[in-house]
Design a protein around this nucleic acid. Sequence first.
RNA 1: GCGGGCGUGGCGGAAUUGGUAGACGCAACGGACUUAAAAUCCGUCGGGAGGAAACUCCCAUGCCGGUUCGAGUCCGGCCGCCCGCACCA
Length: 849
Amino acid sequence: MARYNPKETEPKWRAAWEKAQTFRAPADPGGKPKWYVLEMFPYPSGKLHMGHVRNYAMGDVVARYKKAKGFNVLHPMGWDAFGMPAENAAIEGGSHPKTATYAQIANMREQLKTLGLSIDWSREFATCDPEYYGQQQAWFLALLKAGLVYRKEAEVNWDPVDMTVLANEQVIDGRGWRSGALVEKKKLTQWFLRITKYSDDLIEGLKGLDRWPDKVRLMQENWIGKSRGLKMKFHFAGERKGSVEVYTTRPDTLFGASFLAIAADHPLALDVAKSDPGAAAFIKGVKQGGVSAADIEAGEKLGYDTGLMVAHPFEAGKTLPVWIANFVLMDYGTGAIFGCPGHDQRDHDFASKYKLPILPVVLPPGADPAEFSVAGEPYVGPGKIYNSAFLDGLEVEAAKAEAIARIETQADGEGATVFRLRDWGVSRQRYWGCPIPVVHCAKCGVVPEDKLPVVLPDDVTFDKPGNPLLRHPTWRHTTCPNCGGKAERETDTLDTFVDSSWYFARFTNPDAAVPIDKAAADYWLPVDNYIGGVEHAVLHLLYARFVTRALKDEGFLSVAEPFAGLFTQGMVTHEAYKNRNGEWIEPADVERRGDVVVDKEFGQPVVVVGVEKMSKSKKNVVAPEDIFDAYGVDSARLFVMSDSPPERDVQWSTGGVEGAWRFTHRIWGEYENGVPRGGEGDDPKAVELRKHTHRLIKAIGDSIEQFRFNTGIARLYEFLGTLKGAPAAGASPALLAARHEALSALARLIAPYTPHLAEECWIKVGGQGFVADAPWPEYSESLAAEDERILPVQINGKRRAELKLPAGMSEAEVEKIALSDEGVLRHLEGQTVRKVIVVKDRIVNIVAN
RNA sequence: GCGGGCGUGGCGGAAUUGGUAGACGCAACGGACUUAAAAUCCGUCGGGAGGAAACUCCCAUGCCGGUUCGAGUCCGGCCGCCCGCACCA
């Protein structure tokens, strides 16, 4: 018997689908409901890895299923093609980012196509296509006009050797990751998107995203970080005029205030430093005090007493010293706080160090005011306010409201909402990104470019550090669209997160002459299933939500939320191995012999270091091409979906993919000799098989709807066992008919997972056209329903017997049967039945003693 | 430190959401086929005790306690691991 040969069948079907344009998503709805499936588009690294296989296989399962269920499915693919890897490669002597990127796209497109995905390739684009980023420039200018884009001076991590701005994660121990140079804090005028305008709305919108993981919603909520409190002024006591504004979420503890602290870059601190060398030195010290998170964590609280005093707003005559403190952040709240050491850990640390008063004003429930002390540690829990004049006796929350009201009547401040979220800095001093389409004119200032796209020049060099656009002989020199005079182009390019913040909308009509074809977007958006890695839980997904809102407000599209359903899938991991010299070795070079893992070549035992994300550095990478070659694409797809729940990591193993491979062959074995249609007749075995078939149809559909692919696949494996128990050889006509029904359904049920094999099977059952175009099988409720139940009988909570009963039997009847069952009676000997609990179709529990 | 999640056989994981714990797969072991091996097929597979056997009983979902007729699932307290944020006032 000829074995199923995926190497022959798989390419054949891919070519057939392509020729028939099976996965083209028609723009015209034609009465079908739409379904938009999108996986996060890849950076074109040039090499497909197992993580991609899992991500795209997952989306493909849903897309193929929804298509079979009668939806008009959009399932597009593109390339997140701008960004630093290509530019860094060019700097290191590689080829030009453009040629390299398009070459890598070509490679990766071929590899992705090998996966047999149901993608509408006619919609493909790359973010580095001028047709795409030109439209991005168009809406960028619309946002600029609307005031959602602005420039301001901001501090950046500047690498003085590479002459570039670094992201925080590129700064390692205060040094540039590439050059190793000490990173400087530098002020540059940068472009910002006003995401903070939508802070509240972005939090509110999360509530409606009921098909998002709670975890991601929570992460976004925390990231935006809304807090309610009080902004208030402390007036200077003494000669100095004016006031310092602070923000607090604990106005109830105002009577416990013992100092004010301001950030080192607070205007007041800078003013003091002008005439106070000590303050100037302190500020300088704070600024140099490390950039990395670890530095900040280890950092001790330090302060400098400015000598200034402010008046307490409620206690006449009481004054508080104003300190400059290293732990106060300028860009949160007002950059100034009042310190209440009794009820805040940081203030307590600070006050202890500088011997400032520590006053308790919140009394924990049940504590004795005469005994209670906060000298050792602050108390941050709930309680009643005391030592606080008019606030005495109030609970914390009530006291907050009362304090805010008082401050408001004194006209010293007002209740305020503050967000942690900052505006989005999108300037990158880099070449390989979308040019910011403005010119700088000496006469007219910043002027939007009127001829789009502003195209990146190709003739640039990477032999010197810094932004090649700055060095280009002609590119930046242009004329002002406004006055026609000499002007210079902006040389900053956009953060690549901008590119990925709207691509899902562009897919709805990638050829539109405007950024977004509104009719197409209105039809397709929002994305119904968005699938990708959880590492994008905050940044990408928050930016995309923001840009969608901004584009909606500017009339480009109609939805506020781009992604109705989100699924974050786990990684593909693999065991990592080290030989006895401590060197990493590749999975291909090791072999399992009994209980030990050995080096194939030398036979020496190797150490299994653990199961980790596939990475080059640990050499625990399995190349998808090798797997496709050995087992076929279908087996690889099936395995990455089968072993673990999709949101969790899956561990790649040779044994696992071999199991999937065996399964495909066993399936084929049921079809290869033909599937006779059978005939009429009575056969209990036929009825039994039909029941299993209809139950399976229901189960597989449910498992895909719920993203529980692993349990669905388990049911498919199980069903194969059922088929083997009802072989075709010697079967009655009725059983043959039931087998035909089963195998016809099965071909369609496996199609989302193993689409190539399914097409072969579909032929064998006499299916019309592609199984990829075939409707999902229907199940009959009555056949899928269990008509017989096995009820366990517990006695005092321990399972003692089983009853096989028809489903739906009444509680009283079940009780009667249970109490007369031989096995049950044996266990009840010498005991009195006190109570019988019958849960319909589920369980019987007899309480006896 | 704050917020969230998880802990089930040798391993990945199931468990109708409070109702037969261990589906399905991997590994392992036994058997069939074969001159032999691979492949394939069939079977066993949480631990313990009893029995020739069908089977019966006890223990078991990180640990301790609670609620309940009944707890892997709910509640409280520990222990361990993972993720996010991190001086956010």
